[in-house]
């Protein structure tokens, strides 16, 4: 093992094209060098590959430590890059081997963390990932008038959580209707309460509202005609 490999400065990766192989190699370095970009990496082409012949390209990427140190302390300019920087630093500090993918639309910036064992990132009842999402949002937009939703997701966590919230909402509706009284859900954050409000919005037999103060604010499901 060479000295560079021992220090974890290099990574090898394959891809259908040379560009994809380079991208994958940078991704492989990301857990060790949060926020690393192609700008502070040099590439050695191990195999050119041939897409027509289905031969993958293969590269070795090596981090230029001095160049990385220069960019690592910097706070990026654009909101999407700031979200990426905050999320990838926390992912690295948690010791996770995971990549961070950013998608930006006109309405939201979504950071998706992909990897194994993301329980530490999610935290109890999603407390850690929700806190990280709040920090990412504040970091993205603290000094601009521009504003978009910021979502931090971990390998399908938000989708699973939304499904669980809808099941809890269904149970609350059943209880509210069968017992003819208001039913409180567990405390949840504003974005999760919104999922439940929207889910139950079109029902005519129950109404929803929220009570209490953050972080113990709860959504309450009330039957429209109690006891009937």
């Amino acid at each position: 093992m060479s000295e560079d490999t021992a220090k974890g400065l290099t990574a090898e990766a394959e891809g259908a094209s040379l560009g994809e192989a380079k991208w994958n190699a940078v991704k492989a370095l990301e857990p060790r060098f949060p926020g690393v970009t192609g700008d502070c990496v040099s590439f050695e082409v191990l195999a050119e590959g041939d897409e027509g012949a289905d031969l993958p390209a293969r590269v070795r990427a090596e981090v230029d430590e001095a160049a990385y140190e220069r960019i690592a302390g910097e706070i990026p300019e654009t909101p999407a890059d700031r979200v990426r920087a905050v999320v990838s630093r926390v992912v690295a500090a948690l010791g996770l081997r995971a990549s961070v993918d950013i998608e930006e639309t006109s309405e939201e910036i979504r950071a998706t963390v992909n990897g194994d064992d993301l329980g530490l990132l999610i935290g109890r009842h999603g407390a850690t990932i929700d806190a990280l999402q709040h920090l990412a949002m504040r970091a993205a937009f603290h000094s601009t008038a521009e504003h978009k939703a910021v979502v931090v997701d971990a390998a399908g966590y938000r989708e699973r959580r939304a499904a669980a919230l809808k099941r809890a909402a269904d149970r609350a509706v059943d209880d509210a209707l069968s017992f003819g009284r208001a039913v409180e859900l567990e405390p949840m954050g504003p974005q999760e309460r919104r999922i439940v409000h929207v889910y139950l919005r079109d029902r005519t037999d129950v109404q929803t509202h929220s009570e209490g103060d953050e972080p113990d604010r709860r959504l309450v499901v009330t039957p429209v005609k109690p006891g009937s």
Partner: peptide, 24 residues
């Protein structure tokens, strides 16, 4: 005010994330 946030929300989010990293 920016690091504390409305009702302490931002500083509490910082604490939550840092606590997870420290626990590691």
């Amino acid at each position: 005010g920016k690091v504390i946030g409305r009702g302490g929300r931002t500083v509490n989010a910082l604490r939550c994330v840092l606590r997870a990293c420290a626990a590691k």
